[in-house]
């Protein structure tokens, strides 16, 4: 039944000049164009505009006068503000630092977990996958409150450390950068574990067995075979935690101290406290340019390497 339907679909497609390949490109492309590119164009336009008290709260960029004249009110002021006020630079750098450290820590914790999952008996693996993701089907805020309960001065962690005699005075962790790292690593751990697992899972150990047969020790086999082959998964994992962490707002707001500068927080206050939609948009556009360009370049490189291997 599947094949009959399938043949009919292909016949219809051919008549309309649609190929499977074209369709596979067109469908996600069309969705992203409609619900990302169009909204993005609005934000881009907004970033060249100016605040006013009205609905919507910014000046229109293009104006058609009643006499048929056409004026463009594009202003670069918002971008100039970004360059001249050091608040923004320091926020971007602060975000990059926090995202980079969190990513490194998450990879160090996540890789062994994913590796362990991929080595587990096949019947356990789906259960392990679900075990990793299940905590994240509780409410985010509740998890953050649970973390607060663990990290605060009279919290579980300090209680455990003092009763073990490791520390005398309770540590101040909550409302510091360390709490932010813990929060980000905790919140994004499945985004690190699952892609790495997905890339490790396919090794049905034949390669490693061959290596062992040839006298290669397990650790050596890991470094020379497993790790290099799982690198695309590691790259994906790094992307999936690093990028959202740069723009993160809720975690630093609830767990971090007031003095930590992150671009997500700066943008939030620009948007909600200053009600300056244009400047907030400019902050976001700058962030997009700063991050998307290297990612696209990286992906090209990756695709090229894949091609190279093939030939």
């Amino acid at each position: 039944m599947r094949s009959r339907l399938h043949h009919r679909l292909i016949a219809v497609g051919k008549r309309l000049g649609i190929t499977g390949r074209g369709l596979a490109i067109a469908v996600p492309y069309a969705w992203l164009a409609a619900f990302f590119l169009v909204p993005f164009a609005i934000v881009l336009k907004l970033s060249f505009s100016e605040v006013v008290i009205a609905i919507p709260p910014y000046l229109p960029l293009f104006e058609w006068g009643e006499d048929g004249s056409f004026t463009v009110n594009a202003r670069l002021d918002n971008y100039i503000t970004l360059f001249t006020d050091d608040l923004y630079w320091r926020s971007y750098l602060g975000s990059l630092k926090i995202a980079a450290i969190s990513t490194a820590v998450a990879l160090l914790i996540g890789y062994p977990i994913a590796y362990g999952m991929s080595r587990a008996p096949a019947a356990w693996r789906p259960v392990l996958v679900v075990l990793v993701i299940l905590p994240f089907w509780t409410s985010f805020l509740i998890r953050v409150y649970a973390l607060i309960g663990i990290l605060k001065k009279e919290g579980l962690l300090n209680l455990a450390l003092t009763s073990l005699g490791l520390i005398r005075e309770p540590l101040t962790i909550l409302n510091t950068d360390i709490a932010i790292y813990i929060g980000i690593v905790y919140s994004y751990l499945p985004f690190v574990v699952l892609p790495i697992y997905a890339s490790l899972e396919r090794f049905d150990l034949t390669l490693l067995e061959a290596a062992a047969d040839l006298g290669c020790r397990p650790t050596r086999a890991f470094w020379t075979i497993t790790l290099p082959l799982s690198l695309p998964g590691v790259a994906a994992a790094a992307l999936l935690i690093f990028i959202p962490a740069v723009g993160e707002f809720v975690i630093p707001d609830l767990l971090g101290g007031s003095e930590t500068l992150m671009i997500g927080k700066t943008l939030w206050s620009e948007f909600f406290n200053n009600r300056d939609w244009p400047v907030a948009s400019a902050v976001a556009i700058a962030l997009l340019v700063l991050l998307v360009a290297p990612i696209v370049y990286f992906q090209r490189l990756q695709a090229k390497v894949a091609h190279g291997e093939r030939w």
């Binding site: 723009g247 948007f271 991050l291 990612i295």
Partner: peptide
């Protein structure tokens, strides 16, 4: 879309 801060 992953880079774009949620507010925006």
């Amino acid at each position: 879309p992953i880079v774009m801060p949620e507010v925006i």
